[in-house]
């Protein structure tokens, strides 16, 4: 038993020591939030993120595109929630009842993005991001900054929030 505890502690210590080493090695770096869409890992720059919430009830809105799931009430503020999978045409099953919503903000535009799973914060080196990836479709190319060597897809949330697609102006 003592040995088991020792090994567990040792592993933990090793993990922490590696993260410190990385920090030492890093040049220009950004902090991101990692999350899962279906089985793929995605990341958003932490500077645009207000907070992460867990919500069970989303009020659907009529006369909106597919990717707008509905609206939520967050401490008195009404925020629209977007299914980014439908927006980016990523295949995958519908998400669970209890949904994680990432609240992002840029120049007064606040938006909730549904994530399947929140993986946590991490720091990535900018030079690690490869911008030219052929597998990414042309339509979505504008909203993706690049892919890290750990197959982490980094979304350009600023571009996404400012894009014309997101502006809802449908007439019925």
């Amino acid at each position: 038993m003592k040995n088991d505890k020792k090994t567990i502690l040792k592993q933990r210590a090793d993990k922490l020591s590696i993260s410190l080493e990385k920090k030492v090695v890093s040049g220009e770096q950004i902090k991101v939030l990692e999350f899962l869409l279906s089985t793929e890992k995605y990341a958003i720059d932490s500077t645009y993120i207000n907070e992460v919430i867990s919500i069970s009830e989303i009020t659907p809105l009529p006369c909106t595109p597919d990717f707008i799931v509905g609206i939520i009430n967050l401490r008195g503020k009404i925020i629209s929630v977007m299914d980014i999978k439908k927006f980016l045409s990523i295949s995958g099953a519908d998400t669970a009842n209890i949904k994680k919503v990432i609240i992002v903000k840029h120049s007064d535009i606040e938006l909730g993005i549904i994530a399947d799973e929140i993986l946590g914060n991490s720091i990535i080196q900018l030079n690690e991001i490869q911008t030219k990836v052929t597998s990414i479709t042309d339509v979505n190319k504008n909203f993706i900054t690049g892919v890290t060597n750990k197959k982490l897809i980094v979304l350009d949330i600023k571009e996404l929030l400012l894009s014309e697609k997101i502006i809802i102006n449908e007439e019925i």
């Binding site: 207000n50 907070e51 994680k100 946590g120 914060n121």
Partner: peptide, 13 residues
């Protein structure tokens, strides 16, 4: 978990 994530975001800010 979420709280930790939020805390970490706040810490980054």
């Amino acid at each position: 978990n979420l709280l930790a994530v939020n805390a970490s975001i706040e810490a980054a800010k």
